[in-house]
Amino acid sequence: MIEVENLTKTYRDRVAIDALNFSVKEGQIVGFLGPNGAGKSTTMKILTGFMPPTSGKARVAGFDLFEKPLEAKRRIGYLPETPPLYPELTVRGYLKFVSELKGVASAKVKSEIDRVAQGTGLMPELDRLTGTLSKGYRQRVGIAQAMLGNPALLILDEPTEGLDPRQRREVLELIKSLKGQHTVVLSTHILAEVKAICEQVLIIHRGKIVADDTMANITGGRETGLEDKFIQLTAE
């Protein structure tokens, strides 16, 4: 689903990510981990076609992101760090707008909105203004938006950031329920979450991939395996 070759991004003199190589198979839920500032968001911005890399290649579902950007983008749903909402639109109006941008057929827009609203528990809130929603609901609208058009790949940048424990659990359950229908890449620095739902783990540190393995291999069956590994790999 995702193939990344020698992906590099430099901002002026700072190297954000340095020759990343990894791939993600279809249907996987992948945890993308790393300390703050390790290059997670940069990688995600490149994978969604928002930002071109300085060098290297990235392909999604076989389409090169910078040679066939529209084809690739059609297959990606993206939740940025901050849910991209227009406070003056209602949830329904907002989802309708995003469906139109994503080219969902007019006849299907309504059922598509119902589908994602049901999946994210937004049904009762459809007619509220997104600007008046609580943080948890904004996050859900952000995820609902990413799911519109049923893209094969979902890229979620810190989907549980800033949520309370209950909302956190709900969002995780939601992501877990997507397993099988979508390939999901999610970034977070909360390891317990990753342990609960991810099958593959990528750890990035100072712009380099330091671990790329299945959950079972990384934890080695131990309860604190992931934490130990994370701390060991991201040490100075």
């Binding site: 969604t48 983008k73 760090e81 849910p83 991209p84 406070p87 995003v98 941008l101 994503k102 080219g103």
Partner: peptide, 14 residues
Amino acid sequence: RNKTFELLMTTPIR
């Protein structure tokens, strides 16, 4: 400011 620019740029539109 709303960070919706990223949304526009990552949907399949030119």
